[in-house]
Simulated scan of single mutants.
Amino acid sequence: MKKMFEVSMNGELSYFLGLQVQQSDRGMFVSQTKYTKELVKKFGLDGKSHAKTPASISMKLLVNLTGNSVDQTLYRSMIGNLLYLTTSRPDISFSVGVCDSFQVNSKESHLTAVKRVIHYVNGTVNYGIWYFRSTNLNLEGYSDADWAGCADDRKSASGGCFYVGTNLMASLSKK
């Protein structure tokens, strides 16, 4: 490959497209700590209380035709930033996906849910994904669905994840 293309070696990979990469004998840890801190600061939610979970289990987000509308640009900006963060944070994928579905007509309740996700990531800025060195190359997949769990349209939400050995390779969450 070096014969066909000009290649330069700048040392061990440590930062790439907003992803921080830490390599060790055990494997590789990928996180977005710097990006997360900037995201929280950008929306003025630094120094606020942290949430223990990305979403409330007692409150379901619904289409709200009568509530107070919020600034669509702000809401979409928050969602876009959080969607990029899901690259190394599968723990927020479902919550961000649910909030994402309300971009067309977002209300105060939806904005509150997005802010809760940001409060959660503010308290978990050092989270990321470990890719361990392993000789185990078994492919495993898991999935689940809530079967018509959306009260608005009776559609199901499903999710899944795929592992090679103990390493998460892909995850999905879809309505």
Rank of each mutant, 00 (worst) to 15 (best):
S134C: 05
D100P: 03
T53L: 06
P54C: 05
Q32A: 02
L111E: 04
Q72S: 13
V164N: 01
T87G: 08
R133C: 09
L139M: 09
K175H: 11
S143H: 03
K48M: 12
F29W: 05
E38Q: 14
Q72R: 11
S101R: 13
Q20P: 03
V70C: 01
I92R: 04
L168Q: 11
D46Q: 14
Q32D: 00
N126E: 15
V40T: 01
A157E: 02
P54M: 10
E38N: 07
D25E: 15
L74F: 10
S156A: 04
V70I: 01
L17F: 03
Q23C: 11
R116Q: 09
S56R: 03
R133V: 04
F16Y: 09
V63Q: 09
I118R: 00
W130F: 13
R76I: 03
A51N: 04
D152K: 05
S31H: 04
Y131V: 06
L61A: 02
K115T: 05
A151L: 15
N64I: 00
L139Q: 01
Y35Q: 00
L172N: 04
G165M: 09
S93D: 04
L62E: 15
F102T: 02
S173L: 01
Q22G: 06
V21I: 14
S134N: 06
S56D: 15
V121W: 00
N68Y: 07
N64R: 06
S101C: 06
I129C: 07
G149S: 03
S24M: 09
V117I: 13
F102P: 10
Y15D: 04
G11A: 10
E6L: 11
G149D: 11
L45R: 03
A51L: 09
V63M: 09
G80E: 01
D100M: 11
L65P: 05
N126D: 14
S24L: 13
E140C: 10
E38C: 06
I129E: 02
D153G: 04
G18K: 02
M9C: 09
S31T: 12
W147R: 05
G97R: 01
V70Y: 07
F43D: 01
Y75A: 08
N122A: 14
Q72T: 10
V117C: 04
R76W: 05
K48D: 13
K34T: 05
K60W: 05
S158F: 07
G11F: 12
G149R: 11
M4D: 07
L83M: 15
T135G: 13
I92V: 12
G11C: 01
T166C: 11
V96L: 08
N126A: 08
L137S: 15
Y131E: 07
T73C: 10
L83P: 00
D100Y: 15
F102V: 04
L39I: 15
L168R: 05
S109I: 10
L168P: 04
G44M: 13
G44A: 09
A51R: 00
V125P: 10
V70G: 00
